[in-house]
Nucleic acid binder design. Sequence first.
RNA 1: GGGAGCAUAGCUCAGUCGGUAGAGCAACGCCCUUUUAAGGCGUCGGUCGUUGGUUCGAGCCCAACUGCUCUCACCA
Length: 589
Amino acid sequence: MGFLPRLLWRQFRRLEAGRRVNPCSVQVNEPAQVSLTADPVRARIPASLAVGAPLPVAPTPGYEYAEAQQRLTCAGVGGIVAEDRIREIKIEKIQKLRDKGLQPYPERWQRTHTPGQASQLEAGVGGVRVCGRIVSRRDFGKLTFFDVQDVGGRMQCSLQRDDLGKESYTDFIKLVDVGDFVGIEGETYHTKIGQLTVRGSNWQILGKMLRPMPEKFHAIADREIRYRRRYLDLITDADSRARFRLRHDFIRALRKGLDEAGFDEVETPVLQTKPSGALARPFETHHAALDIPVYLRIAPETYLKRCVVAGFDRVYEFARVFRNEGMDPSHLQDFTMLEYYASYWNYIDNMDFTERLLRQAIEASTGSLQVTHAAGEIDFSGEWPRRPLLDLIQEHSGIDVNACPDADSLRSALGAAEITIDGAEKFGRGTLIDQLYKKTVRPRITSPTFVTSHPVDLSPLARRNDDEANISDRFQLVIHGWEVINAYSELVDPIDQRGRLEEQAALNAEGDSEAMVMDEDYLMAMEHGMPPISGWGMGIDRMVALLCGAENLRDVVLFPLLKPEEGSAVEDAILEAGEEAPAIEGADA
RNA sequence: GGGAGCAUAGCUCAGUCGGUAGAGCAACGCCCUUUUAAGGCGUCGGUCGUUGGUUCGAGCCCAACUGCUCUCACCA
C-alpha cells in the first residue's frame, strides 16, 4: 500500500480546509459515505466525488481518517510524494528530449576546457567547449545564466534566444534542469557586471538527473547523509571539495618526495594468513578454496621489511589497513597508512628526512606552513622539537620515571603527584608510563613535536638503544595531541625478534586479541639478514584532517564505513537469504 | 558501556500557552535580455522518526523504542 493512506489523508485534510485537491489523485467508490466542506467549483472536485454526503464520523475536529480510508480506494498513481513526483516529471522530460531527437545520455562530448580552465580565460576566446553539472541557474525570459561545475572548478555560461533560435532555447529552458550535465560551445565575454561567461552558440544535454538537487545555498547538514551520499556533499559543499583536493594533493606531493629521494613504491598483500606488524585486532575472513581463515592486514610492515631483505634499500607503500576496533572521530577501522623503510638510516636520520618530506608536501598541498585548525594555528616551519618521552613526563607531571625502576615505585610516585590512572593496580611499568604520557603529556602537545626514546617494553618491534638497553630508538610525531607518525630504528636481529615474538604469542594465547602471533615466515626472512633500517608509518587520514582543520576523520574519507541503512538493498538481500542482519562490530560492544 | 542533545516538506529551517502544520530553496504554470542565494504573480508538496500514554484536543506534555550527533570511557 505504501503511500496510499498518507495520500488519502492528505487529500481529506485539504478538502476539509476548503483547499483544492488534485482531481486525478482520488476517486471514491462509495460516494454516499463522504462528506466534504469544500466548495466544489473552487476545489475542482471530480464528478466521481460526491459533495455533501455524510461522513461516518464528524469531519472536524476528531476526524477519523482511518475509518474513512477503508471506504476509499485510489485509482491510478496520481499525487505521490514530492521526490517521486519530481522524478516522474524528469522522466517525462527525458521522453520529450527523445521525442525531439535529443539523446539524454549521449555517448561522448568533445571538451576543450574544464570549468576551472575556462574560468581562467580572457574574454573574446571563441570555440570554447566546456561541460559539467549545472549547479545553479538564473532565467530572464529570453536570456539565461547558469553555472557548470566539476570538482575542479565552476564556470558561468549563458544562452540567449536570439543566438539559439526559439526552439532550441525553449527546449533548454523546459527540458534542462539544475543537476543535469550539459556541454556548451561558445565564446567568452564579460557580462555587464564583469563576470566572465561562455556565451553559448549551442548546447547539448550530457546526462539527466532524476532526483531533486539539495538546497543550493546551504550544504547538507546531516552528517550521516553527507557520508552516505558523498556525491551530494561534494556537489553542494565547496569546503568538502577543498578537503578532498587537499588530500589528493598531499598524497601526490608525498609520493613525489619519496620518489625523488630514491624510494621504490611497492604493493604488499592485503589478505594475510597471519596479521602482524602492529598491536590490533584484525578482521577475519575465510578463503573458500583453501578453506582457511585469512585476515585483512593491520599493517604492511613485515612485508615491506621482506622487500628490504630482497634488496630494495628504500621502499614505501600507501597501504589501506584494517583494524577491528571501535569507531570514534579519531579512529577508522579502514584507513590509509603510508609506511616506508630506509636501509642504513637510524631514527635520527629518519627524523631529519621526515621534516623535509612533510614540509615539502604540506607547502605543496596547502600553499603554506601555517595551518589553521579549530584548536588554533599549527606552525610547521622551523625545527620541530625532539624530546625524550621521560623528559616530557617529568616536565608535565613532575615525576622522574628513571627514579622508579618498577611498577610499585611508579605507582607510589603517581599517588604522591595525585595523578589517578584507572586500573593502575593491574598495569605493568611500561603500561603505566604509557598511560601517564597519554594523560599528562600528549593532550598538551599542539605544535609538531618529535617524542623520542620510548621504554622498550612499549615498543616490541623497535631496536634497543645501544647505550640504554631499556629504551628504544623510536620517535613519534605528535601534533595537536594526535600521534601522526610512529617510527623506529628497526629491530633487525632475528634472535632478539624471535624472543619478543614469543612473548607476544604467549600473551595472545592467554586471550589478548591484540597481541601478535608467532610469524615463522617473517623470522625466516629476517634470518637471511637485514641491513640497518629505519622504518616509518604515518596515518594519512589524521595528517590530512589536521591540515584541513577537520576534527572528524570521516570528513577526509570519501566513503567511510557506516551501519547499513534500514530497509537498504543490502539488508533486504540479507533478510531474503533467510539470515539475520549482521551485528556491527564495535558499534555496541 | 555512561551522560547530553537532536529527529517537522526532496533540501535548509521556523512553529509562541497544548487549540485547523509555516517560510525560503527545489518542482510546476505565467512574466522578465546581464544575473550570480536574480526578481514578480500563482500552484504543488507533511499521518511532524516509531509505538503507546495523558487530554475534549498533542508537532508541542509523559514513557518506551529506533536512528543520528556530541561527549566521557575503552581502543594505537
